[in-house]
């Protein structure tokens, strides 16, 4: 059984990890407004429950089970926000706190009916994607690492999943940024680097670098 407190943690880890930096206990404590020992204690219990993993290098990450639970919560939260603005007529800057309370209270059936009634929206009133919506699922399915493309494929960079800010900035200076269009011209043998064209210039990207660049079909 996942308690409301655990749910808050899952949601926080989910949101922080989307920001691209490793989630560390101190950031979590700050985000949730609790003390670091409390966070450490809770993380230990969540690790035992198989919801999160912690490592020195990558910080706190969600397990598949934890991610599923977190996405469900975020989905409910954002669906409630939509309901509060679209149906009850609240302003979008008023709905967050209400949604925080409502998200823990509903069953799968209510969630499904709510989504149906709202027309399976793709984003919340703030423009964030609602996980599990058809549109989000479709987009996610189309996303894959650049390293999985074949010769001749074209794609658009969705994001750069990166723990090393240096590499991120280096790639950024070359124009390997979200929304940039890439064209795979060649792949070296034995799982070697990819030769990609970006805005008139060509770069060789090693497999491990290419696997961190998430693209979607052009």
């Amino acid at each position: 059984m996942i308690t409301a407190a655990v749910e808050e943690y899952l949601e926080a880890i989910y949101k922080l990890s989307l920001e691209g930096e490793p989630v560390i206990a101190a950031r979590l404590a700050e985000h949730l407004g609790v003390s670091p020992p409390t966070v450490a204690d809770m993380l230990r219990r969540m690790t035992d429950g198989g919801l999160v993993k912690t490592s020195r290098k990558r910080g706190v990450t969600l397990t598949p089970k934890g991610r599923e639970a977190a996405e469900k919560l975020v989905r409910r939260h954002r669906l409630w926000e939509r309901f509060l603005t679209d149906v009850l007529g609240f302003d979008w800057d008023q709905v967050h706190d209400e949604a925080c309370k409502l998200e823990h209270a509903i069953s799968d059936q209510v969630e499904e009916k709510l989504a149906q009634m709202l027309g399976d929206p793709e984003t919340c009133p703030h423009g964030h994607p609602i996980p599990g919506s058809k549109g989000a699922r479709r987009r996610e399915r189309l996303q894959k690492p650049l390293s999985e493309l074949g010769v001749g494929d074209e794609a658009v960079i969705e994001r750069v999943a990166e723990e090393e800010p240096e590499l991120l900035q280096y790639l950024a200076s070359l124009g390997l940024l979200p929304e940039a269009r890439v064209h795979v011209k060649e792949i070296a043998p034995f799982k070697g680097p990819l030769l990609v064209q970006v805005a008139g210039a060509q770069y060789a990207l090693g497999q491990e670098v290419a696997s961190k660049i998430i693209v979607r079909a052009a």
Partner: peptide, 22 residues
Amino acid sequence: IAAEHGQPASSRIAAERHALAG
């Protein structure tokens, strides 16, 4: 900036520079 754009501020600024250059 990171919260608004879903990417680190450094990437955001780099993107702006590239946009201007382009």
